[in-house]
Structure formats: C-alpha cells, structure tokens
Write a protein that binds this DNA or RNA. Structure first.
Length: 434
RNA sequence: GGAGAGAUGGCUGAGUGGUUGAAAGCGCUCCCCUGCUAAGGGAGUAUAGGUUAACGCCUAUCGAGGGUUCGAAUCCCUCUCUCUCCGCCA
C-alpha cells in the first residue's frame, strides 16, 4: 500500500511513477486525493461533536452525583441530538475511508527510480550472464521426452489424478525433486545464514492482502472450503508461494530495531490456478498448477534494503552456480514487475532441450509496500516506529530447475549425470538409462 | 464436534456504568542523593488518527465487530483466539 501522506503531499510525483506501470493506475490518484480530503473533513467534524458530547456527559455525571436529577435530564435530551448527528457523520467518514482503502489496496507499488520504464516483458533489461550454454555432440532432448523415457514424471496419470497441470513424480524423478528441496534448504540455512521455517500451506485472506496478492488477483488463487460449509469460503487459500505465509509471520507486530534483519527460508508447494492462462505453454513441467519452491524472505531496515536485495539475488544465483547451470539475470521493467515490488531481478536458467531460458527466480524489494499493508512496524534506534522493508526471492523454483538440470546433464546413453552437490542427497551420481 | 475457563498498557495484575487511558508492582529512560559495584527520592514511559507554524489540543482504542445508554474496560449479542477435560483423527 502506498503512503497516503506521500500521495497527499506529492500527488503529481505519485501519478507519474504509477503511470510507468499503466495509465489506469495513475488515473486513480485524483480519486485518492479527493476521498482523502472528504474523509478528513468528516473526521474533523465528527471528532468535534464527540468532544462536545464527552464533556456534556461528564457534566451529567457530576449533576447526577449532586442529585440534581432535573438538570441532568435536560442535559440528556440535549446530548441525544448530538449523538444523532454523530452517527450520521460517522457513517460518512467510514464510507470515505472504505472507498479510499479499497483504491489504495488496488494500486501497485511505485517502481524505484532506476527501474527501466517499459510496456511489456520485451522491455526487461539483461543485466548479466553466468556460465555458458553447454555443447552437445547429440541433439539434446526436451525434458518431456527424458521424463517419459526414464519414468521421472508420469504426466498422463498426474492429469488423471487432478487434471492437466498437475504432476505425478515417480521413482528417480520423485527422489530427485526431494533431493533438490533438501539441498536448497541446506544451502540457504548453512551457507547463507537463513532461518528455516515450515509454514502452513493454507493461509487466511489477510495474508494474501498483506503481500499484495489480493484483492486484485483473487482469480488466480485456489480457494479452500471446509467440508460442505459454504460459509467458510473466502477465508482460506492455498499458498501461491511461501511468501504469503512467511512474509506475514510478523504481521501486525511492532519489532525492536535489534531484531532486524529477519532472514527466513521456507520450502512450500505453490498452487496457482492461472485462470485464463490455460493453453499457453502448458506442455510438460514448465507451467503447472502446483510446483515446489524454496523461498527466501528478508525483513530489513529501509536503509539497507537495496544492499540486502543484492545479497538475496546472490544467494539465489549460488544455487545455479553450484550446480553449474548457465543463467542470465534480467531487471524487470516497470510493466512486468509484480504488484508490490519496487525493483525486481529475474533469474532465468538455460534449458538446452527447450532451447530457451526459464524463469526460476524472482528477487524483489517491496520496500515498505507490504509492511504497510500488513501493519508491520519496528521501533528504530531513535524510538520512532517505522515500516521495515520486505524482500522476497525464489531460491529457487523447482519444477523448472528440475527441467534445466535434466536437460543440461543428459548423456548420450540416455542417463542423466547428477552434479556433485546433489549426489549425497540422491545417494547416486547418475540416473541410469532405463 | 461436546463441556468449561479466559483474553486489560513492554510484562505481572486490579478494576461490574460517570475525571479509568486505565490502580499497584516489575521492567525501561532521565534527574537528584549517596565515596563505591547496594539502597533511597523524583519525573517520565502505548498506538493510530485529526488539528496546529509550533507548544499543544481533540478523537479512537482494555481480543474483534455490533447493540443498549447522555455516558461502557464494566451490561447485552455475534465472532476470533488461548487453556483444561471429553469425543474423533494423521
């Protein structure tokens, strides 16, 4: 959520920054300014009346104490009128407040000044590459063929169980997936100093609001109903990312400055309905409704957040470097960044069988956008309450890492070599050709 | 799912309609005193919002929301969470 004070004091600036993400957003600034003024006007009026009522009520109390019942009764009728005015004005103020809040919740974060302005993903900027595309003296197969021939993923039966977009990993495939999860968690916990958490995979509506998924993207989530109780709908959702529970761990808390930074890492499956996206690149494991991911979350003091973003990105890169997988890093342009982000870097890993790069990580600094939404604050060294900056990054997404790994390490004989760091987790140095 | 108990400021914990934003204690901060790592005295110590150039003033908040009333931490209703016991269950 944007800072209402900044909008109030500097509407033109906010309008310009929002316009880089889309004119529709910029157009809302005028409404915000108007509603904010209405709201404050109503509040001032209400509070003045309430002050009058409070002092009159005290007088009544005093009169009652002195047994001056008649005077007290006269006073009561007088105050009753004030009460009626208050409730009328109160609802006016509440209405302006609701409308204002609703608009604010639907406005994205302001992009950082350094973010390239663009209209689509085509305007994203490549920052750097690492490693090189591997050479093959045979035609590398796509992961779908490898999965079929080695029995790593049973696409047909996965679809039978839950519909298209759901995977049934089996045998070596299931073991490799598990090995990767374990490896990533250990890497971030032991080498990068993150605190591991294992969150609920279902979260309440407020968590989704907190990270900016809701209210705008409710159509992308899986809603959970308890049994046959339709009343329960709209309360719980399958997590689209571990960011939803983990970034909300300290929601509505007031942390002490010394408690920051908080560095969390968590594994979770991620559930994405992707309504309306069906049919687009859906074959195989690249775009699915459920995938595994290890997520990194940082809650930090504002002054440090861009340094922390660099670290976060480095930690995610380390995953690919340690597995010797070629990748590139993009800085997303204003139009392609997620809703709450002020700056985002994507990591795309090379998948030889696809002949393309696959997004496996998105590292974002949301600044105070999320902490304001979830009312998370910390008391700084001067005793002032401030909103910390919240960062998130995939470290990394798994289905696609799996794809890049098996496509990169496929051998002429049909087997798959396993990079050294994974071997102890898989208890094998290759997946044998069947 | 059934029965019961509870939710008050950083913590402990009073408070059943009228200067209670909230006693007391602890903790913390500052000051004073004290010739020594002790004790004592004093002051301060929530959050959000509105208003003001500022000092300040005002409003709201005692789990959440609604109601009764001139006035609610205190009475009524609904909900949430926690604890104990029972049932069911991986």
């Amino acid at each position: 959520m944007l800072d209402i004070r900044e909008i109030r004091d500097n509407p033109e600036h906010v309008r310009e920054r929002l316009a880089t993400r889309g004119e529709d957003f910029a157009a809302k600034v005028g409404d915000v300014v108007r509603l904010d003024a209405e709201r404050r006007e109503a509040i001032t009026a209400v509070e003045e009346l309430k002050a009058r009522r409070n002092s009159a009520s005290k007088e009544i109390g005093a009169l009652m104490g002195q047994k001056k019942t008649e005077e007290a009764e006269a006073k009561k009728t007088e105050v009753r009128d004030i009460g009626d005015q208050i409730s009328a004005l109160d609802s006016q103020a509440a209405q302006a407040d609701d409308e204002l809040r609703d608009i604010l919740l639907r406005l994205p974060n302001l992009p950082h000044a350094d973010v390239p302005v663009g209209d689509s993903e085509n305007d994203n900027m490549e920052i750097r590459q690492w490693g090189e595309k591997p050479n093959f003296d045979f035609e590398p197969k796509p992961h779908t063929e490898l999965c079929d021939s080695l029995g790593l993923v049973d696409f047909a039966r996965g679809a039978k169980l839950a519909g298209s977009g759901f995977l049934l990993y089996s045998g070596w495939g299931a073991r490799l997936e598990r090995a990767l999860i374990q490896y990533l968690l250990d890497l971030h916990v032991h080498n990068h100093g993150y605190t591991e958490v294992s969150p609920p995979f279902i979260v309440g509506y407020d968590c989704m609001i907190g990270v900016g998924q809701f209210p705008k993207f409710e159509d992308q989530a899986y809603m959970v109903q308890e049994g046959l109780d339709e009343e329960s709908r709209g309360k719980l959702y399958l997590v689209p990312t571990a960011e939803a529970p983990v970034a909300n761990i300290h929601r509505e808390e007031l942390l002490k400055a010394g408690e920051l930074p908080k560095n969390y890492c968590a594994y979770s499956p991620c559930f994405r309905a992707e309504a309306g996206a069906a049919g687009v690149g859906t074959r195989g494991m690249i775009r699915v409704h459920q995938f595994d991911k290890v997520e990194l979350i940082k809650i930090v003091e504002p002054e440090t957040s861009y340094d922390e973003l660099d670290k976060l990105l480095g930690h995610a890169e380390k995953v690919l470097q340690s597995l010797n997988l070629h990748y590139r890093i993009l800085q997303l342009c204003t139009a392609d960044m997620s809703f709450g982000s002020a700056t985002t870097y994507d990591i795309e890993v090379w998948a030889p069988g696809q002949g393309d790069y696959l997004e496996v990580s998105s590292c974002s600094n949301c600044e105070d956008y999320q902490s304001r939404r979830m009312n998370l604050r910390y008391k700084d060294d001067d005793g002032k309450n401030r909103h910390p900056h919240i960062l998130n990054g995939s470290g990394t997404a798994l289905a696609r890492l799996f794809v890049a790994l098996i496509e990169t390490y496929q051998q002429p004989d049909g087997s798959i070599a396993i990079p050294e760091p994974i071997q102890p987790y898989l208890r094998a140095d290759r997946i044998p050709a069947s």
